[in-house]
Nucleic acid binder design. Structure first.
Lengths: 144, 144
DNA sequence: ATAGGTGCAAAGATTTTGCAGTATG
DNA sequence: CATACTGCAAAATCTTTGCACCTAT
């Protein structure tokens, strides 16, 4: 419940990845956890309320560092790149109308893992990770 | 075998989508079929051997038009956007080392369709299409 | 004839890089 | 203290847009 075991504690997360815990980074990590699939600009805006002088390049650099160290994943879309914290394999639901993105529970980890195994078994390809985006209409947009 | 029924005939493809068949477009459509998941620059280079004066903007515009009219799909990656002809649902195998991309047969259309149905049934989301990228090592890179 | 397409150049937008100063481990 | 990080500004991409000319229907 508290203390250094908390996996969502930015300082612990950074330390585990061997990265220095600067105030800016702590805030960036926190926002990537708080926000849902944020863009660089969204993280920048969120962090700026606490650190008005932070540079956009720092946000870019930090998100790249996080990605390189396995803390986060880049999700390139047609118009923007979004980021998400690395968790279990999962699908993302992307609304083609309002652009909302949410994690999908209906496609289980196990199925996604099973797909990787199947590909490695069948294809001459050593499957490691995957990205599954499902496009359609979210509840609100489907209703309208 | 020949004539207007040929689905890969650029003129027929363009006409079916209600687009004008200019020489440049015909060449662009042909190259998107010939090349595997090409980038804008790759299509541009390929078409330039036939039309040295073609503008890069024309390639951008045409690929966008094709995407808007359901002929092709954009595949945004971290560094570049690639394009592919719209076909059956399928997964793409992306090598994290050499960057090669190939269509995956091991994940069947049916499974992907089934996932969409499952999501629509379970989640409050009307699933329509999807993009599944599987990352790992291709045959060559896995061997090395 | 005319709506739509082409090519060029300029403008936008996004992301990376170089560097001097600063703070972390 | 040495290394790594920050912030700023400039640069490098990548993509879109405006406009005058052209061409497929």
């Amino acid at each position: 419940m508290s203390g250094i075991r908390n996996e969502t504690e930015p300082v612990a997360i950074l330390r585990r990845a061997g990265l220095r815990s600067t105030p800016q980074r702590i805030a960036i990590v926190r926002e990537v956890y708080n926000l849902s699939h944020p863009t660089v600009a969204e993280v920048y805006e969120a962090v700026r309320s606490e650190f008005p002088s932070i540079g956009l390049a720092t946000v870019y650099n930090t998100l790249k560092t996080m990605t390189d160290n396995g803390l986060a994943s880049e999700l390139p879309f047609a118009n923007v790149t979004r980021y998400e914290i690395n968790t279990n394999a999962h699908a993302n639901l992307v609304c083609r109308k309002c652009g909302a993105i949410e994690d999908c529970d209906a496609v289980e980890d196990e199925l996604l893992e099973e797909i990787l195994k199947r590909v490695t078994a069948a294809a001459s390809f050593r499957a490691e990770t995957q990205r599954l985006d499902i496009y359609g209409l979210c509840r609100n947009c489907a209703a309208a």
